[in-house]
Design a binder for these strands. Structure first.
Lengths: 100, 100
DNA sequence: CTTGTATTTAGATATTTACCTAAATATCAT
DNA sequence: ATGATATTTAGGTAAATATCTAAATACAAG
């Protein structure tokens, strides 16, 4: 996992709002759309990016397609973030060469 | 901490590479630039976005400007990510933190 | 105070992205 | 099969972003 898809998916406020919505339970694309002012076509585009990042899963139920959080990716994401930002023990700013 | 700036900053591969570099210690803008093929001007733009997200700090040392990770933001970021993706039983969109 | 080095800012361009409308696909109900 | 509903795909546009070159700023050393 490169993080490319993940962080890109998280970079958009609409997509983060979709994720927030889904925290309270799975919803169909149409139900999700009721919470937004943009068109369903635009939302579908966002759904695609969220799926690409594996942040959500889909399941068809008759006419509806139900979106739900893929919670298993959450730990990976948090781990990735920590890994990205955790400094190694040596070398902090204070240790930087004082080459003034 | 806005989340908007954070995830946007993390969405770009060059900026993530800058952060990875800084994990092993603070470096000046020029030293960082040696690891990339893009111009220093372009990198400066990326530095600005990383600063805006409070992912890095700067300190002037003579002619150099030394960049270092802002590690204090790391826990906030991880917490934010977990909050965004953790399902809840009763939360609605209104209950969700706005600033994620 | 002038010259050299380090970094940023300004202005321009190419690519990417978010959004829209319209059309296509999939399922359900009659 | 026909019509209605739900969702996605296609095609196009406007805004945002990454990048470049050139110019400006900040500091150090002579």
């Amino acid at each position: 996992m490169t993080g490319q898809h993940l962080f890109k998916a998280l970079a958009d406020p609409t997509r983060r709002d979709i994720l927030k919505l889904l925290r309270s339970g799975s919803q169909s694309a149409g139900d999700i759309a009721d919470h937004f002012t943009i068109t369903k076509a635009s939302l579908s585009h966002h759904f695609n990016l969220l799926k690409q990042a594996e942040l959500v899963r889909t399941e068809r139920r008759g006419q509806h397609i139900v979106y739900s959080l893929n919670t298993s990716v959450m730990e990976d994401a948090a781990t990735m973030l920590v890994a990205l930002l955790s400094p190694t023990q040596e070398n902090t700013l204070e240790d930087a060469p004082d080459d003034i």
